[in-house]
């Protein structure tokens, strides 16, 4: 049918455009970073010191900062999300389930900047008080806020899988005498692993790409933290800071390199998780 043909073409075009866009971004980044390779500036960018007025533009501390912050938030948010999703789907009474899901949906729509400045006025003083060290702007502070930020994303994606699996397996397992906790542990979670993986990939994407939380809460010191209470600077915050303050100098090369590294981190993590996913396939 003619209309079916057009629908197919339209969908194909949509898929091509988005793939092409992602590919173009990569090309542009490579094009921008290329001078670094030819001029020999690569060594100054891929180094551990950010002292721009002494000509050292090392962004490796930012790479470490980004990875520590996003993986930390992911490690904290994933078990929380699994707990929330299982509770909502299996254990919660109907009314509580509705309320919980409404809150989670609402959380996804809160702008990041709100999480940021609420944390500045609430979390930062608390951290200062509790740990009695530093300014309160630290890796840990940003990690807590970022955990809250990515939690609803992971919950929503994972819960969608959980709901499907639960629909088919619940009555079967109940009829076989499973208690609800053992049903969750032995059947529901093992059958939802791939959904969890998809949720984690998405959560990681949000975490590593988030700029405002780390910019507002992590302190932005370009150094390798020796504890969770130290300040860090992420790649995204670094880009934002440099772009906001300067648009001419050689600082800019480090921005392009940061962009490229962010891009590559996302691709690598995606590939790694996907490989893990295919090994989990039933």
């Amino acid at each position: 049918m003619a209309s079916e043909k057009w629908i197919r073409r339209l969908l194909c075009a949509a898929a091509m455009v988005s793939t092409a866009a992602a590919f173009c971004i990569l090309l542009v980044l490579i094009h921008l970073v290329l001078p670094l390779f030819t001029s020999g500036g690569l060594g100054t960018v891929l180094s551990w010191q950010w002292l721009p007025f002494q000509g050292q533009f090392g962004i490796l501390p930012m790479v470490v900062g980004s990875l520590l912050l996003s993986l930390g938030a992911l490690v904290a948010a994933t078990p929380l999300a699994v707990g929330v999703s299982c509770f909502v789907q299996v254990l919660a009474p109907d009314k509580v389930r509705g309320a919980c899901l409404a809150v989670v949906h609402y959380m996804t729509s809160i702008p990041t900047v709100i999480y940021g400045f609420v944390s500045v006025f609430l979390l930062v003083p608390l951290m200062r008080q509790w740990f009695d060290r530093g300014t309160g702007f630290s890796l840990l502070t940003a990690m807590i806020a970022l955990t809250l930020l990515i939690l609803p994303t992971i919950v929503l994606v994972f819960h969608a899988t959980l709901r499907e699996v639960d629909r088919t397996a619940r009555a079967t397992c109940a009829a076989l005498g499973f208690s609800r906790p053992s049903y969750i542990r032995r059947v529901l979670l093992p059958l939802s692993r791939r959904g969890l993986l998809a949720a984690v990939i998405l959560g990681f994407g949000r975490a590593v790409g988030d700029t405002l939380i780390s910019l507002m809460l992590a302190g932005n010191a370009p150094m390798i933290p020796s504890s969770a209470l130290d300040s860090i600077r992420t790649l995204t915050a670094h880009i934002a800071l440099v772009v906001a303050t300067d648009s001419q100098s050689t600082f800019y090369h480090s921005v392009f390199a940061s962009g490229l590294i962010l891009f590559l981190i996302m691709i690598l993590i995606n590939l790694a998780l996907r490989r893990l996913g295919s090994s989990l396939a039933p």
Binding site: A169, A171, T172, F178, R186, V187
Partner: peptide, 27 residues
């Protein structure tokens, strides 16, 4: 009181695990 459903509702595990899981978990 054991129940067999209208449509075969095996769990997407191995044949053995379909049988052993309830035995180990429930019993």
């Amino acid at each position: 009181v054991g129940m067999v459903f209208q449509h075969p509702n095996v769990l997407p595990f191995s044949i053995r695990k379909n049988l052993t899981l309830p035995l180990r978990v429930s019993l």
